[in-house]
């Protein structure tokens, strides 16, 4: 065992040394869509060809868990494209390095950390949506729901999938948004009703929409971006944006404390808040951090900002444990009885 181990150490050492000479390699953790990574890196490299990005891509939960696990011994230089709430959690744990990117003032205040220098900057926002499979709906005689409350109607029994809030950030986003929109009591009452209709809780946030797209369920509570992608791929989907207001989450970027390439990481952050970057985000997202940049995006509503609830991220983060405990005691016990 010893020999190959040494061999590997030596090999990886050599590789590192080689690449450091050529240009700076920046390890960037991200939860961006896999299919978009190449595009994001290419656009960045048009401005900064000397910095090559090494992506570490995974789902939001795994990336966050990985960053926390590596807390004492960070591997990442920067994060680009991770849920704002995750970054706030990392911020609380003291993992982020404050830096004010050039031109950060141009971003809407909501999209940058209030500390000075800010520890994270926002990129864009994604929002909750209902993915509705029209073919399956016809099969089961379902009418398209118009609001969140509609989803508690008996006709949808066993047709809805949503992400499990304890496994998926999207799931928790939905739950916390309902509690904020409807208030504590009504919020839980709403979820009691919704639970009657739930077919299953998935581990991932995008899966409900994919399940709706492939007909494994008629209705998936997920987020708009995923629905738009599936629709483009030919799924018989309709995207529904309930009137009561949509939970939303921003995507954000930050430098990890202890990065050995802080200059390059700062260069990246400068570009992340730039106009070309915001135009890049707008190719997939209807709402971006820099005001006045966003153009309408296919399958999205015309003025998406108006649909968003006033999301209190701090409240959501603080009460996460207690909300999840209550959620699990309410709904997981019942799941067993099935």
């Amino acid at each position: 065992m010893r020999k190959p181990l040494k061999h590997w150490l030596a090999l990886s050492g050599t590789l590192l040394a080689l690449s450091a000479q050529a240009n700076t390699e920046l390890t960037v953790y991200t939860a961006l869509e896999a299919e978009d990574l190449k595009k994001y890196a290419e656009r960045f490299n048009q401005a900064h060809p000397d910095i090559s990005i090494k992506w570490v891509r995974d789902s939001t939960g795994i990336i966050t868990a990985r960053l926390l696990a590596e807390k004492d011994n960070p591997r990442a230089d920067a994060v680009w494209g991770l849920a704002g709430t995750s970054l706030m959690l990392l911020q609380k744990e003291g993992l982020l390095q404050g830096y004010a990117p050039k031109g950060v003032e141009a971003l809407a205040p909501l999209y940058r950390d209030s500390q000075n220098p800010p520890q994270w900057v926002g990129m864009d926002a994604w929002m909750a949506a209902i993915c509705f499979n029209t073919v399956e709906a016809k099969k089961h005689n379902l009418t398209p729901p118009q609001s969140w409350q509609d989803l508690t109607k008996p006709e949808y029994q066993n047709h809805i999938v949503m992400p499990h809030p304890a496994s998926s950030g999207t799931g928790y986003l939905d739950v916390s948004a309902w509690l904020q929109t409807f208030g504590q009591d009504k919020g839980w009452a709403y979820m009691d009703g919704l639970h009657q209709n739930i077919k299953s809780y998935t581990h991932s946030g995008s899966k409900p929409c994919k399940m709706a797209a492939s007909g494994e369920a008629a209705i998936g509570i997920s987020f708009a971006f995923r629905g738009a992608r599936e629709k483009e791929n030919g799924a018989p989907l309709e995207l529904i944006f309930p009137q009561e207001g949509l939970g939303w989450e921003m995507e954000a970027a930050a430098i990890i404390k202890g990065s050995k390439h802080s200059a390059a990481a700062q260069t990246l952050m400068d570009w992340v808040v730039s106009k070309p970057a915001n135009e890049l985000y707008n190719e997939g997202y209807a709402i971006v951090a820099m005001p006045g940049v966003a153009k309408p995006v296919k399958y999205f509503p015309a003025e998406p900002e108006k649909l968003l609830i006033k999301n209190d991220f701090a409240w959501a983060a603080q009460n996460r444990d207690s909300i999840l405990t209550q959620w699990q005691s309410r709904y997981e016990g019942k799941a067993e009885a099935q």
């Binding site: 789902s59 939960g61 795994i62 966050t64 868990a65 926390l68 696990a69 959690l89 499990h164 304890a166 496994s167 998926s168 581990h203 999840l324």
Partner: peptide, 11 residues
């Protein structure tokens, strides 16, 4: 385990 570690980062 997966839910605790990945979903809630409770190692």
């Amino acid at each position: 385990i997966y839910k605790q570690v990945i979903g809630q980062q409770k190692f």
